[in-house]
Each structure stands twice: as structure tokens, then as C-alpha cells.
Design a protein around this nucleic acid. Sequence first.
RNA 1: GGGCGGUUAGCUCAGUUGGAAGAGCAUUCGGUUUACACCCGAAAGGUCACAAGUUCGAGCCUUGUACCGCCCACCA
Length: 877
Amino acid sequence: MSTRTELPKTYDFKQTEARWYEYWESNGYFSADASSTAPPFVIVMPPPNVTGSLHMGHMLNNTVHDVIVRRKRMQGYNTLWLPGTDHAGIATQNVVERMLREEGLSRHDLGREKFVERVWEWKREYGDLITRQLRRIGASCDWSRERFTLDEGLSRAVREVFVRLYDEGLIYRGERLINWCPRCRTALSDLEVEHVGVEGKLYHIRYPVHGGDRDSVEIATTRPETMLGDTALAIHPEDERYSGLERATSTLPLIGRELAFIRDEIVDREFGTGVVKVTPAHDPNDFAMGERHRLPRVSVIDEDGRITEQGGPYAGMDRFEARKKILDDLEEEGQLVRVVQHPHKVGHCSRCRTIVEPLLSTQWFVKIKPLADEAILAVEQGRTRFIPQNWEKTYFNWMRNIRDWCISRQLWWGHRIPAWYCGACGEITVSRTDPSSCGHCDSTDLRQDEDVLDTWFSSQLWPFSTMGWPDETEDLRAFYPTQLLITASDIIFFWVARMMMAGLKFTQDVPFSEIYITGLIRDAERQKLSKSKGNVGDPLLVCDEYGTDAVRFTLARLGAPGSDLVLTEDQLESYRAFATKIWNAARFTLNHVEESHALPTEEQLRAMDLSLADRWILSRLHRTVREVNEALDQYFLHEASRGIYRFFWREFCDWYLEMAKLHPEKSRPVLIYVFESALRLLHPFMPFITEELWQRFPHEGESIVTAAYPETEGEFIDETVEGQTALIHEIIVKVRNIRSEMNVDFKQFVPLRLAVGDAAVGSMLEQNADYVCRLARVDKFEVAQALSGEKAAAQAVALGVALEVPLRGVIDLDAERARLSKEMEKTRHEIDGLERKLGNNKFLERAPAAVVEENRHRLEEYRAKEARLEEGLGRLD
RNA sequence: GGGCGGUUAGCUCAGUUGGAAGAGCAUUCGGUUUACACCCGAAAGGUCACAAGUUCGAGCCUUGUACCGCCCACCA
């Protein structure tokens, strides 16, 4: 009979974590089988940017994924977690351009083709950093199905979608006022503009008036440089202050352009002077007014953020330089009336933080309303459900006020727009494959659109493009639609909403039935993590310090749905300690297990003559299994992990192992069974240590990854056993309490006499006296009928048991008296409250009988306690 | 300007059908007791932001107030 290999004294998580992932992956445990008959459980990973390295937000998100996915896999679902990365147009292009700049080159020096090849090289070299990091944290994805948004298949899906939407008139090309980043030199969607509060100034400028009741009007603007493009002045239709300007005109200072006065509802009479300069080519409001009043649009700022030829003397200047100069010139001409502080919000490029310029530009757009309507309906009908539910309000609010989506980007890295312009007839040909001739006039003089698509245009197709759509592949049939999407709230609009629209449009189905929105990680100062704040940190360094399992457990423990979470070292330390605790408990347990010992079945356990402690821990285990499963069914990872922690440490280690030490050999089957079950229960949260230990326990199967997740019908749950054990624990705690309060030396054994009213309880206690003797260091255990008169501290214990521990050692009588008096005060306060409650007829009439009964019972207990305290106090005199 | 969330023990946070206020860390006291000092045992610590309301009963439901955070929005 060989003994099992002894565990090292301390848990070396680095060694353990390095070992198992490759074993799992190479054995194909994470691969889904499209031909399986088991019910599918499918999640697609939100594809991280190829430029990215793992940050704590990813780690949270992927931990939540992995806990849910691993459990489903263990429950026997045909589980697919599909991973991949996003080409991240602007971000990636920026990275490679920065590298080129260090070589003294720009992308234009290389030319489009060579530049794109350079980006691919970069991607091949560095792009899989994040996928390696995901393996490090244990993410159990199916790498055989890994995808990249620029893969051949996904690119085909992008073209298919573009062509279909174009053919239906849902994609169009037109000149609109768009958000332009002068640094990235590309158009941006509304979502890619971040409005940041700035301490700006409001400049009041005098414009001369001709043919009215006054010589001039005063306008207020935060952007004086745009005045170069003014084509009108606007006043609210009912603003009587300016009724004398009906036929008047104005002259634009510095430039001399004649401006008409227009009347428009959009003008706020309360703001500034009530007169607004109108610059249709550089302001969204003014653009709208320009449309209504057929005003000319004069573009005075170009794609580099410089003043155009239209800007007269300021042509060629940078927009902010021009602002200064214009203010100087106005000042000189005496037209700058005053300047006031004006905090307001300014749009910045979310990629590079440059101030965005609204420009008139010809771009491609998606006519989004018809798609949004379907997506709204689907959530209203509950076909897709948000968790927590209140996120649907955010979704609805955005969807219901949605505006057309500018999808063209002036970049080189991305899906090139499949549109060709004919040199002969000027018409546009949009095509799935590169056309050889114009679709309108057969000319071969074709030039493809230079622009690429917004990155999100391809990621919106992710749930089905990754599975081979538009082909009807085996994977698509087996795994689409998916069950669950897990992501943070910051990409609900960018990604989630658009996947809903695309899924409904192209697959006639919602892409996922549930959307779980995780909280955001914040630092100790409660700030959101962001690169610009420099507080992101590398989670892998944290994993190196505390162990991946501990970090995962911490994230699961803190991440209640809907609440943001703050990671602290304290938390990480405590869950690292949890891993160590498990390791040590295993060391103890395995000391009693030999190679030949088998994992007992539940039938075998039921047939055994088990001790109270054994039956108790089986009951607690099964109760925990039930709680954990109920919690995980609702994605309450915080409750599930708390339950496991409580069970393993507070119940299994603190109580059961100590009780089992009385007869470890006899308890062995239960020890093995409970430990092995607990490992499986914990595995989704702490995959590495659980595999390491599970392999050393008697077990069935190759890996804990594919072992069954614990389930229970509750057959081992035993209220009586739990009640009896609770009483024994309570007695032990009370004796320890008395020993501690009275400074009884730890090594010293004490006699204990219990006064028990109920004979059955008395005999139960006598049968289980060993537990009390061992754990409370009692040498003489006696169950008596009444309290003796000798001088002793009497303590109240629930269930009508009183106990006496004769005093030994030195007692501080005053301290003891103070303690008992305080206890007495609290007790009397409780009694008062309960008496008042039970004296209230309305309470007796309207509260459920069980509640009334419970309160009566409690009152009796408190009265008994009061009597004992009184007696105890009396003895101290 | 709208919307959402938060305010519970010194700190970070749980608390789902309204029915005796919880955890981890920190604190105090005592301990090496045949797995563990990343440990064991015992204890202390709360007008659940404030106000009003509904209810026999409110941390939980309603309304309002204050402060904090996030998101959206065309007040120049």
C-alpha cells in the first residue's frame, strides 16, 4: 500500500499555474464539437484590440466569462467560448505610424500597400500578446476557433453586409457635417468624440448693422475663428428686442462679407445677447439652420486644422493661432466688446485627444433608424435581456435618439470600402468582389474608394461572422445564436447595440439572449482606470504577486452585478491566503489518504454509520452546492464565491477538520468526498490550484475541467443534524469565550456542567461530548438538571442550555461585572422592544402567525437570558 | 439640460419576494493546540446620508433634500 506523494509545505502557485494550461489546451478540453448532441452554451469574447495588452478590466471581464463557461462545460453543455482580436483601425495604424516616425518615415513614404504590409508584420509579431496573456489567466477559450476581424472570412462578411445595405438604400454617401480629427486626419463617428469640460472663454464681438434701428449688434462665441465662415446672424423669432432689424443686414468684421439676419427657433434668447453668428460649415446647429434658411456654407478650416483660402488674411494659419490673431485684430478695431469666463464642453478625439473639428465632408453613412427600430423591439419583447436590467434604459435612450452612423475612415488599416467610381460615367459600383467594369456603363476606368470602414462595422458582425456567415456552416447551425454576452457598460453603444441591429438584420435573430454588463474597475481613489490617468497597471504583475487564482477569486468576490469594484491589496492578500488555506487543508487531508483509497459514491456514504460531524459537513456541503448553483444561475459570482469561501474555510476547516481529528480514519470517506466535491465547486473560480489538488485526490476522469459540476437534490441536507451541531458549536464558543474572558490558560482543561431542560437534548450532548471536550478543552463533561449554587460564571446559551465553568485563575471581577451589565442593558432593551411589539394588537392581527410566534419565542429567550445574567451578576458580589 | 448609479462597522463592500444588521481587511486580547502565523481562539465596533410618507413592521417600497460618481445632449 503506497502512500500518496506528500505535498510541499507551501503552495507554489507559479509552478502550478505554469503547468496546467498547456495540458488543458493540448488535450482539447476547451474545444467545442459542432456535431455534439449536448445542448450548446456559446459566448463570443469581446475581441480585444490587437494593439492591446491585458488590463484589469479585461481580467475582470474574462474572469467572469471563464467562471460561467467552465461551470457550463462541467455541467455537460457543449460549450464554446470563441476568442479573437479586433484590428482596431485607428489605434493600430497609430502604433505603426509612430514606429515609422522613429525611422524618420511617414506612411505616405511607404505608400498604401507597403504600409498595410508593415501593419500585418507588426500584427504577426506583437498581435498575439493579449492572447498569450489570456492563457495566463486561465481563460478556457476554444483557440481552434480564434478569429481576427480582418480574416478572409470576416472580411467577406463585411463586404456582404455593405453590399446588402447599399442595395437596400441603408448605406449612402453624402456631404454632411462630420467630426474630423485633424491629427488622425479622419472622420469620426459621434461615439468616437469625447466631450470634455474645459475652462473656456466667451467672446462678445460687435458686428456692424445697416438699415436697422441700431448701428451694431453684439454676438457671443467661444470660437471666434469660425466667424470667417459666418453667413448669417440669427435671432429668435419672438425676440422683440431685435424687432427693428427686419430689413437690416450686417457686415462680417475683418472679412467684409454681407450677412443677412434670420429668425430661428433654435436661438436661445437667454443666452449671451440673443444674437447668434451662423457658421453652417463648422457647427452642427448652424448647419441645421443653414439647411432651413438655405444659407451658403463657407468652409474656412481644412483637414489639417488650418484656415482655408476662404479665410482671407488668415489663410494658412493653424486654427488656434488664427483665433489669437483674430482676437487681436478685433481688439485693435475696437470690435471685441468683452471676454467672460465660460466653462463648457469641447469634443476631443477619443483616440488622440485632439480637439475635434466639425467639417463639411463627403462620407459614407448607415441610415440607422430602420435597423434600430428592430433592435428596440427585440429588447422590449424580452428576446434579449440585460443583466442588470436597468441598462436597457440606457440602450433604449440611445437607440431611440440614434443618428446616422458615419462609417468611412480616412485610414489605410481596415476593410476597404467596396465601392468603385467610374471615370467615364461617374457612377458608383458597389460589389462583393472587385469589379472589372462599371456596373452602369461597362467602362473599365474604375477607381476604388480610398477609405476604410469604421472598425465597429466589422465587430458588429462578430457573433456570426466568426462562425462562417454568410455561408451556412456547421458552426453557425450549431452555435448561433449565442446564449450570453458579457461586457462592460462602456461599449453598449459602440458594440452591443450595433450587434443587436446587425444580428436582427442579417440573421433574423437576436445574436444573444442575455447581456451581462459587468462593473468597472476603479482604483483606490475610486477613479475609473484609464491609460491617460496612468492607473491601469498590468494585471499579470498582480497575478505574479498574489497568484492568478487569488486575483480571479478577488474579482469574482467583488464583482456584484451593477456595481463598480475597487481592488485593494487587502482583498488580494486575503484570497491568496485562501489558496494557501486550501493547500494546507489538502496537506492534512491527504495525510490520511492512500493510493488505494477510492472516491466514495453517495450511495456508499448513505450506507455508512457516520458521525454527527460527518453528517453535518455533508449537509453543509450540499447546502452550499445548492446556494452556489442558485447564485451562478443568476450570474451572482460574488455570492457564489462568498458561499464557497465560507464553506471551505469557516465550516470545513474551522469546524469539520477539527471535529474529524477525533476519528480521522473513520471520517476518511467523508473527508475525501467533501474535499473532492469542494474542489469541483471551486474550480471555475480557481482553476489552477483545484486541478493541482484534484489530481492528487481520488477522482474519476482525466481532468477537473471535464469533471461534473456538483449538483444536489438536497438529499444530504439534514436540518436536525445542523441544529444539533449548531448547539454543540455554540457551547464550544461559549466555553472558549469564558476561558478567554477569564484568562484561563490555554493548556488548562476545565470541567463543564450543562444544565439542560430537555432530556433528549441532554442525551444528544452526552453522546457528542467528545467534540466539546476536544475543541473547548474540557476534561469533565457533565449534563445536570439544575444550576449549582457554587460561585461560577453562568452564561446563557440558546436552546435553553445553561453552562457553568468553575472559576479558576485570576478574574477581574470589576471587568466581568461591567461586561455582564452591558450585556444586561442590551438584553433589557431587546425585551422592551419585543414586549411593545407583542403588546400591539395590530401586530398580532396582521403579522403572519409564524412571525408572531418567532417574536414570542425570542422574548422568552431574552427573559431567560436576563434571569441568568442577573444570577451571574449576583454571584460576583 | 436629461438619464443612471452610489451614500450600511475605521477601510473596501455584500444585503432579490419588507419580518432579529453581514463579510474581508484593520483594531483589541490570548495563543505554536499532531494542515496552516498567508495561522488558531475570543472580542469590540453601526440613529443602514438626511427628511417626510406607506405599513403591525422599512437598509429594502414612495416622495423630497444634500453630497459623490458615470453616461447621454446642438445652448453658440
